[in-house]
Design a protein around this nucleic acid. Sequence first.
DNA 1: CAATAGTTTAGAATCATTTTAATTATAGTC
DNA 2: GACTATAATTAAAATGATTCTAAACTATTG
Lengths: 149, 149
Amino acid sequence: MNQFTLKMEDFKKHVDKLRSSGLRPTKQRLMISKILFGQKGTFHFTINNLNKILKKKFNSKVSLASIYNTIHAFKKKGYLKVIALEGNKSYYDTNTSSHHHFYDEDTEKLIDINNSGIVVNNIPNAPSNKSIKNVEVMVRVASDNYNQK
Amino acid sequence: MNQFTLKMEDFKKHVDKLRSSGLRPTKQRLMISKILFGQKGTFHFTINNLNKILKKKFNSKVSLASIYNTIHAFKKKGYLKVIALEGNKSYYDTNTSSHHHFYDEDTEKLIDINNSGIVVNNIPNAPSNKSIKNVEVMVRVASDNYNQK
DNA sequence: CAATAGTTTAGAATCATTTTAATTATAGTC
DNA sequence: GACTATAATTAAAATGATTCTAAACTATTG
């Protein structure tokens, strides 16, 4: 069984993330914060993914209600963003900058494309009284020999 | 109560769409086809939208099972495409060409951007053994004075 | 017109998500 | 450290979109 341990500086980081999101730093939330923000790079996940990691890595069953509650607060504070993908479940991304994605249709996994890459030109004007909030590109990739849906 | 009537040429068009999708042209399916493909321009909808239109316009309650069945067949045949948007429900589009969208966050409505507009440059290579299937841009717009989610 | 195959439907089942209500934990304050 | 108010956790119920099921119905064919 894995222990739930954090170095002091990491612990402070996660406590800050939680506090600034309006949440008390509880055991459950620190586990979630560690999983999301304790990685080197950016992290893409669904609630189901996260729940599985919590179970496996910490041998701990945090209730779905608490997971959702924590994720919503992080999202509201801007520590997470939702990725638009068709289908019934939400994908979240710890990279909250405006950026683009590859979506692998075979594995259903997302890959970030950093913003220095793609350039989008010639965007028409927004409808009247509206302004553009965000522009994002989804590049769908798949193996040619894979069965398409 | 509205009548369900079609001009002969339109009738044939819808019958063809259904037959070529592997479906028999039944009353229910012809109503659906008329709603989807009987419009001037392109049509964006959710299953819930479509169901409401069926009720209001034709005073007819087609079962959800039949609606889903028909939509799936049209999608499989390529007469409809699914639009990726976060959230729990699927958005469909009768414009099946590769094209881009405005998404109005206030009204939750989609607007097509025809392909002659936006240009996407500098797309990185797909991961190895994968090839690019599709590139789509989502331009999110909103009123500045509207409450953001 | 009987046999067969495809359709429709209501309702049950499922999956992601949200809500509820009771229990438990946290953060001051004394 | 105990006390109290407030917030958090949880299991379980509720919800909403979608899928499945089984029975009744309709169309097509021989």
